[in-house]
Design a protein around this nucleic acid. Structure first.
Lengths: 169, 169
DNA sequence: AATGATCGTTTGTGTTGTACAACTCATTTG
DNA sequence: CAAATGAGTTGTACAACACAAACGATCATT
């Protein structure tokens, strides 16, 4: 009975077919540790981790609408308003009306926001040295590259931009 | 002055020395997305993500004391009690008293707990296919390996075990 | 021009996760 | 014996967040 199983699977998975590991739990676990420690590390900048996540997303995908930002961040759009208000009050982001659809707000990272984000990331060095102590610098870069790839893959990339360059979705 | 700096650093960082990227924000971001979706995926098992994290940690480092578990998970030890109660009520973990120090509880993953954890991870396949869609299977394994390495590095490994094999810490 | 839908916003309510403190009990240690 | 420690219990407080209902401004359709 094992022979037939192997024949069936060998077509698509030629050599080895181990049960793939699930990263979900480890990501959640690691995120908790990182978040707890990073909150303390960036408190002197008047920011929390959720601010950093928003700024980071904005740095990657420039000029998202609030709706797209809400889905990317996975937060309710009503709660996003308050978060953006805090960031805008400090001049870290800017809201401008979309030219195509004047109902929409295009959220952009300001230069000051970029500098603040860089500052925060600098402050996170000590945290990662502690939490990611088991990884050398090369492994950390690999980790970053994979995470960046996974997160930058916007689930609805076509509706993220101002839609002037987004073709048919 | 830069020459002396280069001489000093060249020993350990020979060629390039770019500013390393910080993974913290990306981990937090990705964890949020994974957690939200995984909660729905494992609800039918009567579990939440925090249960899975606890079981996963227990699968890796067998026989932690509750105190060590609390620091590893980064939760308050008073809140850990309730979490372990829920897991123990379903027979997924077992508490036994330490022989060396009868105040301590050694928490262990039961066979049933291991099976439940495996079931949950199986249910997470669909979630990761959605959230980690940008990563192929090889990249996901690499991600898992890095995360496992980072999380298994227990910050206080010496006090994690039953202390019969832990030497001088 | 009228109608309905959409985007951002405000307000309010409710739930959840978690920290924190204070205390008890059992046990170890000095 | 006294002090310290591990686990458990209880209660309080707060922050994050979802969710609903409504509003004004703006599109899109007819």
């Amino acid at each position: 009975m094992r022979a037939s199983w192997r024949r069936l699977e060998a077509i698509e998975l030629p050599v080895v077919n181990q049960a793939p590991h699930r990263s979900t739990v480890l990501v959640v676990h690691l995120a908790r540790r990182l978040r707890v420690e990073s909150e303390a590390a960036i408190a002197h900048l008047g920011m929390r981790s959720r601010h950093l996540v928003a700024l980071t997303v904005l740095r990657d995908q420039h000029g998202s609408t609030q709706q797209a930002l809400a889905t990317t961040l996975g937060v309710d759009r009503t709660n996003l308003v308050g978060l953006l208000n805090e960031l805008e009050a400090e001049g870290l982001i800017a809201r401008r009306r979309s030219a195509e659809d004047r109902r929409r707000h295009i959220v952009e990272l300001t230069p000051k926001g970029g500098r603040r984000l860089a500052k925060a990331e600098y402050a996170l060095a000590a945290v990662e040295d502690r939490v990611l102590a088991a990884l050398d610098s090369g492994q950390r870069e690999t980790l970053y590259a994979l995470l960046h790839l996974a997160t930058s893959e916007s689930p609805s990339a076509c509706m993220a931009a101002d839609a002037d360059d987004a073709g048919d979705c």
